[in-house]
């Protein structure tokens, strides 16, 4: 897959703290509504952005480390909605989280890896790269899906 050029996306940069989450999510969702995504694609997008951004906020930085997260989106000619999430901190590929065992009962079932499992399920062409000290997660929501 070709990398998405950051310049072709619209970006919002905020401190990587809990308080930034709502604004970052609203930024992407407003763009998605303007792009006329279907109801189904809207919730898939929201789920993916929520999981990935909260992941950065919760795990991406050491306590006290001042840091930011950038979220960008764009719409391709074919109508696919592209998202990129960029953050500093230690190199961390969230896509490598161990897959949850989906067959266990209430007592045995844990929640580790659940969010990332969901993200992988609802997105297309998701990938991670670490470039020049920045963690970059990119994905698409296909227009037809």
């Amino acid at each position: 897959m070709k990398n998405i050029e950051p310049d072709s996306l619209r970006w919002l940069k905020r401190p990587a703290v809990r308080e930034s989450f709502s604004e970052l999510l609203a930024f992407v969702m407003d763009g998605a509504r303007t792009a006329n995504l279907s109801e189904e694609n809207l919730w898939k997008l929201e789920l993916a952005v929520e999981e990935l951004v909260t992941n950065v906020i919760r795990h991406g930085y050491a306590p006290g480390e001042s840091a930011s997260v950038r979220v960008g989106y764009g719409v391709s000619f074919s109508g696919d909605f592209s998202v990129q999430i960029r953050s500093g901190g230690v190199a961390f590929n969230p896509l490598l989280a161990e897959a949850p065992d989906l067959t266990l009962d209430v007592a045995q079932r844990g929640v580790g890896g659940l969010g990332i499992h969901l993200v992988k399920t609802v997105t297309d062409q998701i990938h991670y790269q670490h470039e020049a000290g920045i963690n970059v997660v990119s994905f698409r929501i296909r227009k037809s899906s």
Binding site: L47, P100, L102, D105, R109, H117
Partner: peptide, 29 residues
């Protein structure tokens, strides 16, 4: 469960139902 009780669910629709299915939670409860 730890108190000898049980939690069951009802009325799942739309994306909530789908998320339960995608994560296997539809068979947990």
């Amino acid at each position: 469960n730890q108190r000898g009780g049980e939690l069951v669910l009802c009325g799942l629709g739309g994306m909530v139902r789908e998320v339960f299915q995608l994560t296997g939670f539809a068979t947990v409860f």
